[in-house]
């Protein structure tokens, strides 16, 4: 999309929370999509609409957040759910990662 500004997750926070949440299988995870200077804005919005079933308005808002802030949490759920979604995003050519909820600082 545009300038690739990757905001680093807050490492300190993650280290503090890892031990406490390891045993909790219900801990929510986030799917994060990162900005890149290649993927078309229309394509990113198209993927958000057609894969997640988001409205055009919501998909455009998430796409713009990726574009302007460098990343956006586009989905959340169990680790398994967001990992499956991450593979789908990679298949679409979008750069996606998963992280425990609360890591985005």
């Amino acid at each position: 999309m545009s300038l690739s500004v990757a905001t680093e997750p807050t490492h300190g926070l993650r280290e503090q929370t890892t031990a406490a949440t390891d045993s909790a299988s219900m801990v929510p995870w986030n799917l994060v999509v990162w900005n890149d200077p290649v993927n078309l804005m229309s394509y990113v919005s198209y993927v958000f609409q057609t894969y997640f079933g988001y409205s055009e308005e919501k998909a455009d808002a998430l796409m713009m957040q990726v574009h302007t802030e460098g990343r956006s949490i586009v989905s959340h759920g169990s680790k398994e759910t967001v990992e499956r979604q991450a593979v789908a995003m990679h298949n679409f050519g979008l750069w996606a990662t998963v992280e425990r909820a609360g890591e985005d600082g």
């Binding site: 078309l40 229309s42 394509y43 198209y46 609409q49 057609t50 894969y51 997640f52 079933g53 988001y54 979604q85 789908a88």
Partner: peptide
């Protein structure tokens, strides 16, 4: 690809739009 996505978006809207998920 720009023209393809525009066309796919038009097709998606015409078909009422349901996400894969």
């Amino acid at each position: 690809q720009t023209t393809l996505i525009d066309a796919m978006m038009a097709a998606y809207r015409a078909e009422g739009g349901h996400g894969q998920a």
